[in-house]
Every structure is written in structure tokens, then in C-alpha cells.
């Protein structure tokens, strides 16, 4: 048993230092990911786990895989995930009510089964054995070796997966697509329309609210030079909600008393 342990612990010193520094951190953040109350914190811890996995890959001579892991998973996938979390605002803890009957028990059983399977497989594959064929695989360089495998032996699988991804992307586009009846009005069209409209009075844009009034809040209509309020100077939404203050209430009253 002791011999076995020594055999397993036999790695080069820098790699061992790296492992004993990063592995506990990765495990802790994995636990933290499960325990964290806020979804964004969980997502961040997951991103950190991916980065530490990438560092392990690099330490194990799979340089390209490590870098691609960071670019694709941490950079793109996790970032999209964070986007959705932030936009949808899934901050509060999810409700723990079971919607499907027996789901919890089934998922716990499946998780234990998967963990057992993985443990036995990884244990049988790795424990006490040194890596075989690594130098052979990396003989022409890590990237070149990987490229050769991808484009000769696994080219079919590679193409099938890319077809799957393209189908998924197309599906998402079809689902999100809506047909436009006429082309979108852009800034240029709006500008042309202002000049070709019935009146040139608004060619330079709508008047701002509260101009000439004593109050410059957004809910007070501006006063025109003749003293009448300009209805286009406040937002139609405020007007519809009734959140509009009569600008006449702020008009200066002629001070007749002082003259007497």
C-alpha cells in the first residue's frame, strides 16, 4: 500500500506543487458552486474550475486543449451563461418544491451511480500506471498531432459534430426569426421623413421639456414664445399616464400689489 502511494506520488516537483496548490482550490470551488446562494456566484466558481482544469491540462502536456478550454468554455460558453443569468436576474434561490414526483430520489441514485462508475474507471485506468504513448503522440508537436488525428482518423465524427452544431444554430435562428413587412426605418429615413413631412416645424427635432417654463423637469411642457404650452415637448407616455404638470402653474404672476 505504501509502495503504491509512493508510486502515485512520483511526479516532477513543479507539477506536484501545482497540483497540491490548485487541486484543493478546485475542489473547494466545486463545493462552493453547489452551496452558493446566488446563481452568479455559482457560475463564477464554475468558470474558475474550468480555468484550473485548463492549467492541469497544460501541465499534462496537452497545451492546445488547455488553451482551447479557456477560449471556448470560459470565454464563450460561460460568458453567454452569465449574460443570461444577469439579464434574467436569477438571483434568488430557486424554489425547492419537487415538480416531478420522485425526481430527487432518482437524480440522487443516478448521481451516485455515475460517481461510482467514473471512480472505478479512472481508478483502473490511471492508478499506479505511467502514461503510455504521450511522447509518441506529441512527437511532431502537440497541435500538429491533434490536427492529424482530427482530420484523418476522426474526420467523420468531427464533421458530424459540426453539422449538429450548425443545425442547432440554424434552429435557434429560425425560432428567433420574425419576418419584416417593410425595411426597418433607420436614422436616415427618419431624417428624410422629418423634412418631407407636412410641417418643417419639427425638422430639427422635438422641443425639450420645460424650455421657457420656470420648471425644467421632464413632466412639465415647455412654453412656446406666445405663452401656450407645447404638447410635443413631453413624452407621450407621461401624458397618457397623467403624470403631466400644467406649465401654467409656474407662470409668473404680474405683481400688481407692489405698484400700488
Amino acid at each position: 500500500m505504501l509502495n503504491f502511494a509512493l508510486e502515485v506520488g512520483k511526479t516532477h516537483t513543479p507539477e506536484a506543487v501545482l497540483f497540491w496548490f490548485l487541486a484543493p482550490l478546485a475542489v473547494l470551488s466545486a463545493l462552493g458552486m453547489l452551496m452558493a446562494k446566488k446563481a452568479v456566484h455559482s457560475a463564477l466558481l464554475l468558470a474558475w474550475i474550468m480555468i484550473s482544469l485548463a492549467i492541469f491540462y497544460i501541465a499534462e502536456d496537452a497545451l492546445f486543449l488547455g488553451i482551447v478550454q479557456v477560449v471556448v468554455y470560459t470565454g464563450a460558453v460561460m460568458m453567454l451563461f452569465l449574460f443570461i443569468l444577469m439579464l434574467v436576474g436569477v438571483d434568488t434561490a430557486d424554489s425547492l418544491v419537487e415538480n416531478i414526483k420522485g425526481q430527487r430520489a432518482a437524480s440522487i441514485a443516478a448521481a451516485i451511480g455515475l460517481a461510482g462508475l467514473l471512480t472505478s474507471l479512472i481508478g483502473r485506468a490511471n492508478m499506479g500506471r505511467s502514461a503510455v504513448g504521450l511522447t509518441g503522440a506529441n512527437a511532431n508537436g502537440n497541435v500538429q498531432g491533434l490536427a492529424e488525428q482530427l482530420f484523418t482518423k476522426y474526420v467523420w465524427a468531427f464533421e458530424v459534430i459540426s453539422a449538429l452544431l450548425i443545425t442547432a444554430a440554424l434552429g435557434a435562428m429560425v425560432l428567433a426569426h420574425s419576418q419584416r413587412i417593410r425595411s426597418r426605418t433607420i436614422q436616415r429615413d427618419q431624417s428624410i421623413a422629418r423634412f418631407r413631412g407636412s410641417s418643417l416645424a419639427e425638422a430639427a427635432g422635438l422641443p425639450g421639456s420645460g424650455v421657457y417654463a420656470r420648471h425644467n423637469a421632464v413632466d412639465v411642457p415647455a412654453l412656446l414664445p406666445d405663452g401656450t404650452p407645447a404638447p410635443t415637448s413631453i413624452s407621450a407616455v407621461l401624458e397618457a399616464r397623467g403624470d403631466m404638470i400644467e406649465s401654467g402653474t409656474f407662470a409668473l404672476q404680474p405683481k400688481e400689489e407692489e405698484e400700488n
Binding site: 463564477l44 492546445f64 488553451i67 477560449v71 470565454g75 460568458m79 508537436g141 502537440n142
Partner: peptide, 25 residues
Amino acid sequence: DLPVGVLYVLAIASVGVYGIVLAGW
């Protein structure tokens, strides 16, 4: 000198985005 040096720069840049997103959120 990494055999994938330029990809490494891209990877670092994609981690750097986290700073901006997290600051905003």
C-alpha cells in the same frame, strides 16, 4: 514561448472580459 502563443493571448483576453462583465453586474 508557447507553441500556441497567439491562442494563449486570445484566451487571456477572453478571461479579461470577466472583469468588465462582473464590474457591471
